[in-house]
Simulated scan of single mutants.
Amino acid sequence: MSAPTLPVSSKQTQPPHHDGPPPEARREVFVRSVRRNLSAHGFLIGAVLCFAFFSWYPMVREFLLAFQKTEAGKTTWVGLDNLEYVFHDPAFWQAWRNTLLFTALALLLGFLVPFVIAIVINEFRHAQGFLRLLVYLPVMLPPVASVLLFKYFYDPGYGLFNGVLHFLHLPEQQWLQSTSTAMLSVVIAATWMNMGGATLIYLAALQGIPGELYEAAELDGAGLLSKIWHVTIPQTRLILSLLLLMQIIATMQVFTEPFLLTNGAGPEGSTTTVVYLIYQYAFNFNNYGGAAALGLVLLVLLAGFSAAYVRLSRDSES
């Protein structure tokens, strides 16, 4: 009789258990991940370096210059002297009055006109693509070319606008040479140059409004203006608010239009804006500390509007 065999333990027959893949496999996965993300990391590092060099460093440098003064190549810390000098400069308050006037007129035209044009285009059932291209065409033109075109239109001798007034037997105007019309002339040119983008945004918002709302308004006997007031504006209130803040931020930094149309200052300083005054401080007066101090004041003001814009953007996403 053969001896009985003992049962083999299951622990002795099973292979040893390893926690996760072997080190060679983990190393290979890591190398593949690095190679796959190498290009993305390279683009990200490049973008960060560009922002650091062209945006963050100038902002930090401007903040330091606002409290410094450079004379004969020697830089000294002067504290709040630059801000005090700027606040006591009569040109400072005139520049702010002109900037606020430009902002108010630009919002009156540049905020209302694109919205009306978008409503009109939205009513067309055909040729909307052509009309969108026609409205956006000024944005695609170089800004300098657009401004010089309007400078030709405003010419008091052979300009297009005075030619139209002469044809209609109306008195001709000194568009850029008069203190009463210089700022309005700059606003008209700026509005024509920049309204294309706002018009397309408004048009996209209008096309997202359900048609049932307009049908219900028509059944209630609402007319065109009533439908715009009770349906269109409430449905596009968020877009209107965001674009309003963006246009305030953009118009308070106006420089190109008055610089090219009226040589910056305009008749009796009527088109001198804050940004142009910064340009004068830095490049005409060689007062970089005053220019930095004025830029710091503008930065603080625009930061408040930017914070409101970010807050509205977050509310729209929630």
Rank of each mutant, 00 (worst) to 15 (best):
M1E: 06
M1R: 03
K11M: 08
Q14D: 12
P16E: 10
D19V: 12
P22S: 12
P22M: 07
A25C: 09
R26M: 14
R35H: 07
N37T: 05
A40P: 01
H41F: 15
A47G: 11
V48R: 08
F51W: 14
A52W: 04
R61Q: 11
E71T: 02
G73K: 01
K74S: 00
G79M: 07
V86S: 02
P90V: 07
F92I: 05
F92T: 11
T99I: 06
L100C: 12
V113E: 08
A118F: 12
A118P: 13
V120C: 15
L134Q: 04
L134D: 04
L141S: 11
L141Y: 02
P142W: 01
A145K: 01
A145I: 05
S146Y: 00
S146T: 09
Y158H: 04
G159N: 04
F161L: 15
F167P: 01
W175S: 08
S185G: 14
N194K: 08
M195R: 02
T199P: 00
P210R: 15
Y214I: 10
E215R: 06
E218F: 03
D220E: 15
G221Y: 05
A222D: 09
W229Q: 15
W229S: 15
T232E: 15
P234L: 10
R237Y: 02
L238T: 07
L238D: 09
L238P: 00
S241G: 03
L243R: 05
T251R: 08
E257K: 03
P258G: 07
T262A: 06
T272H: 10
A282C: 04
N287V: 10
A291N: 12
L294D: 08
S306N: 02
A307R: 04
R311L: 01
D315N: 13
D315E: 14
